[in-house]
């Protein structure tokens, strides 16, 4: 994982010390329950709760928010679409010739709901990352008997994400060295061509690298997932402590109680 989370996960608080399995399960539980919430208020309270916990374990909030902005770029595209594709009461309408574009109140509500759900899910995962080293998370997945192939995929993705990132940086630099202007509008046909080619080359390179990585694994006697599957022994001696479980339950109960309040019609 990158340095930011690595440094955070080296701190020592009660949450850092919790058993990784408990943390994984409770974070997943939190996400599952909170994404079934229907009310803005409930979701907002959930997100605020996560922010407070993040703050309590010593996470600086502003870098977290900056990171969130990146993720929301992806979610944002979807959210921007919702008001226009959900049927309901029109609040905005444009007439473009024969084409009529309209936004609906229901759509806007749905978009806000989606945004809040995304926010709390990302915050929950951030909490896991900020309090647990990446390697610990991976080991946690293994201990939870998650299929080895899935764990390996996560591991490789993170490992080679940085290698690919470096490659992309070098390619960009080399393009710039030959006079390419990085800030050109992508509407320019030539610029668009350059970008598509860059992406294509990156894909091909990744594929070739994957082949070389696989070769290097074979060279060290790898026989494929399943045959000698888990190449890291997992100690069975580490048992989950009661205190860990209680913390986990407490965490999930917070969102569960919001859910119950919502179901009882008290909020929402």
């Amino acid at each position: 994982m990158n340095n930011f989370f690595e440094q955070l996960s080296n701190k020592q608080t009660i949450i850092h010390e919790l058993d990784t399995r408990v943390k994984i399960i409770s974070v997943v539980g939190f996400i599952l329950i909170s994404s079934s919430l229907q009310s803005f208020l409930g979701l907002a309270v959930g997100a605020a709760f996560l922010m407070i916990v993040l703050k309590l374990v010593g996470t600086p909030i502003s870098p977290i928010l900056r990171r969130l902005a990146w993720i929301l770029v992806f979610g944002g595209a979807l959210i921007a679409l919702f008001p226009f594709i959900t049927p309901g009461k029109e609040i905005l309408a444009w007439q473009l010739g024969t084409l009529k574009i309209s936004a609906t109140q229901e759509g806007v509500d749905k978009a806000i709901l989606l945004f809040l759900r995304l926010l709390s899910a990302v915050l929950a995962v951030t909490l896991l990352n900020a309090t647990t080293g990446f390697r610990e998370v991976i080991n946690g997945f293994r201990k939870l008997h998650m299929p080895n192939i899935l764990v390996s995929i996560i591991e490789f993705t993170v490992r080679y994400f940085f290698v690919l990132g470096d490659e992309l940086t070098r390619m960009k630099l080399a393009r710039k060295a030959r006079g390419y202007d990085l800030n050109q509008s992508i509407i320019n046909r030539k610029a668009l061509m350059t970008i598509t080619q860059l992406i294509a080359v990156l894909f091909i390179r990744s594929m070739e690298r994957a082949e070389r990585v696989y070769c290097a694994m074979l060279a060290r006697g790898y026989g494929g997932v399943g045959s000698n599957g888990e190449h890291r022994p997992v100690k069975r001696s580490e048992r989950v402590q009661m205190a860990d479980i209680l913390w986990g339950i407490g965490f999930v109960c917070f969102t569960l109680s919001i859910k119950l309040l919502e179901a009882g019609g008290i909020i929402g």
Binding site: F134, R135, I138, E155, F156, R159, Y160, V163, R209, R212, V213, C215, A216, M217, R220, G221, Y222, G223, N228, H231, R232, P233
Partner: peptide, 19 residues
Amino acid sequence: DDQIFSMTVREDVSFGPLN
């Protein structure tokens, strides 16, 4: 970078012997 893929150096060096 083609050869080393594990999370720590120790894990990577033990890859072959474990296989």
